[in-house]
């Protein structure tokens, strides 16, 4: 792991530790609904916010100090932007608020169209996310659209990782954080890697592996190589390879014998990206060349025989 005295990294380490603690003893998946978030922006939400969230429903990350999550005052910014847009661009505001989440070919909902390709759409979407009581699928669609606005959503997405109740939405938050700005992106992804839902952890690892600064969470990535879920292991291996984490070598090598073919495949591929020459010399390669999974066998064969 990259060591640093950067306070952001220290904060991230703290978050990861807190989140992991929460994971270990925490409840499964669900947490307080956004409508009970302490900074609700409508009277109705403020009233709802007066009702404390059940601790039994709290997500792992929510056990961290809320104050440490919010590293930027994005809510006042969002409210100011919404006030401005309501006055100056009411058509834009109304269009984004009313924009229909349409089904993609895969069945997921998405917000598309020119109204989304507008930085001003970001605060409106955040406002909509908090104020309209949308369904889980629509909340996921709103979050998915945030990066496509080109506007500022980074701090909000990071904080929402601690507040969002639905793993489906937290998964998409992790995907959005791939395109978010540091340090918020890593703060949110640190929560994602420690999430109680495997699908969220897996997506957090995908996003980390796609970020040039993802190696700042290398310890969490390497730890995820032994996650209970094979998809998470697989994504941890992939991230390790993308980020060329030399410190992951031993853990990756151990996963060459994993029961999941996808884990073996991505572990071997990650090793080849971290240390091509060393991987070619691995004794395990002999066995993997005749692996029962054709993809693993083909990769091992190529690594063993190509120059």
């Amino acid at each position: 792991m990259t060591t640093s005295r950067n306070p952001t990294v220290s904060l991230l380490s703290t978050l990861v530790a807190l989140a992991l603690v929460g994971c270990a003893g925490g409840p499964d998946l669900e947490g307080p609904d956004l409508r009970s978030a302490p900074e609700a922006v409508t009277p109705a939400q403020a009233a709802e916010a007066a009702t404390p969230a059940s601790s039994a429903d709290a997500p792992a990350a929510a056990t961290a100090e809320p104050a440490t999550v919010a590293v930027k005052e994005w809510r006042p910014w969002m409210e100011a932007q919404v006030d401005r847009l309501r006055r100056e661009q009411p058509d834009t505001f109304d269009a984004v608020m009313a924009l229909e989440a349409r089904p993609t070919r895969a069945g997921l909902l998405r917000l598309t169209g020119p109204a989304v390709r507008n930085p001003d759409a970001a605060p409106i979407l955040l406002y909509r996310l908090l104020s309209k009581g949308e369904s889980t699928a629509v909340r996921a669609a709103i979050v998915e659209a945030l990066p496509r606005t080109g506007g500022d959503f980074s701090a909000a997405a990071a904080e929402l990782m601690a507040l969002e109740t639905a793993p489906e939405v937290r998964e998409v938050l992790c995907a959005a954080l791939q395109r978010a700005q540091a340090p918020h992106a890593l703060e949110g992804l640190a929560l994602g890697v420690a999430d109680t839902a495997a699908r969220v952890r897996a997506q957090a690892l995908r996003s980390l592996g796609a970020r040039p600064d993802g190696a700042q969470l290398s310890e969490a990535i390497i730890a995820a190589l032994t996650d209970a879920d094979p998809v998470v292991q697989q994504e941890a291996a992939r991230a390790s390879g993308n980020l060329a984490l030399e410190s992951a070598t031993d853990a990756l090598r151990a996963q060459l014998g994993a029961s999941s073919p996808a884990v073996r495949l991505h572990a071997l591929r990650a090793l080849s990206r971290i240390d091509p020459a060393g991987t070619k010399a691995l004794p395990e390669l002999t066995t993997l060349r005749s692996d029962a999974d054709p993809k693993v066998a083909r990769l091992a064969e190529r690594l063993a025989t190509e120059g």
Partner: peptide, 11 residues
């Protein structure tokens, strides 16, 4: 590219 919310599936 990988599609968020699609379990690692690509489009």
């Amino acid at each position: 590219e990988t599609i968020g919310g699609c379990g690692g599936g690509v489009a």
